[in-house]
């Protein structure tokens, strides 16, 4: 084992890791906003939003992240829709986040008693008012554990963005692996960096969850991974 060379390049790797995190955070935040809009749209316009959004969700959830990256970056370019790599990357992370977050928020909404929704209806609320005053808070609270798990999965998935030449951690790692002739050591260090990042975020989310809820029963669900 010879970690010296790798550790000399640690700033390079850390820089890549931070860029990956940036994509993850950016895409995830926009993605959750999109998911919330999808849920609101479903409440307001029923199947006209439900069916197309369901198709979107199923396509994203049933195809690999890598393929989505290639399709968006190369496939659409063929149709004349060109975009710089970082735009494609943020879109893919956003799409992925939006699709999974829609499912997570939907199941968070299932936990809201039907009577509460009827109460809102009976007070003459519009869909927007119903969403804002009746649905949003309990839904988000119920969804928080699953959302935090999903964020970590998304963050790990940014390691695949190297395929469209985004200089994140895995990208820097493969460069360093071939120039340093110490590929195994490089990936051990990379693994440690990812482990640290996911632990830090897991802790952060646990903190948020404790602040937000307190005694709310958290619903655990098996998260999707890739």
């Amino acid at each position: 084992m010879e970690f010296g060379v790798v550790l000399d390049h640690l700033p390079l790797l850390v820089g890549g890791a931070l860029r990956g995190v940036l994509y993850a955070v950016g895409g995830f935040v926009i993605g959750i906003a999109c998911a919330a809009l999808i849920i609101l749209g479903r409440m307001a316009w029923g199947r006209w939003v439900t069916i197309p959004s369901q198709i979107f969700v199923e396509i994203v959830r049933n195809t690999p992240f890598l393929l989505q990256a290639f399709f968006l970056y190369f496939g659409l370019a063929k149709l004349g829709v060109m975009m710089p790599g970082y735009v494609a990357a943020i879109i893919i992370v956003t799409f992925n986040s939006a699709a999974y977050a829609t499912e997570i928020l939907r199941s968070g909404m299932l936990g809201i008693p039907k009577g509460l929704l009827e109460a809102g209806d009976s007070l003459g609320f519009t869909a927007l008012q119903q969403f804002r005053y009746v649905v949003a808070r309990p839904m988000l609270r119920a969804a928080l554990p699953a959302l935090s798990g999903q964020f970590i999965i998304i963050m790990l998935n940014t390691s695949l963005l190297s395929a469209i030449a985004i200089p994140e951690l895995n990208y820097e790692a493969s460069n360093l692996a071939s120039t340093s002739f110490r590929p195994f050591e490089v990936y051990v260090v990379v693994a440690v960096i990812y482990l640290t990042l996911s632990s830090v975020f897991a802790g952060l989310f646990a903190l948020i969850r404790r602040r937000v809820s307190g005694s709310w029963g958290s619903e655990r669900r098996m998260q999707d991974i890739v």
């Binding site: 008693p113 009577g115 509460l116 009827e118 109460a119 209806d121 009976s122 007070l123 003459g124 609320f125 519009t126 005053y133 009746v134 808070r137 309990p138």
Partner: peptide, 20 residues
Amino acid sequence: LRALRRKVAIVFQGYNLFPH
């Protein structure tokens, strides 16, 4: 329907108060 519901209010068996 929303206009109707401002004229006709309802109280349920299960109260259905907003818990938050």
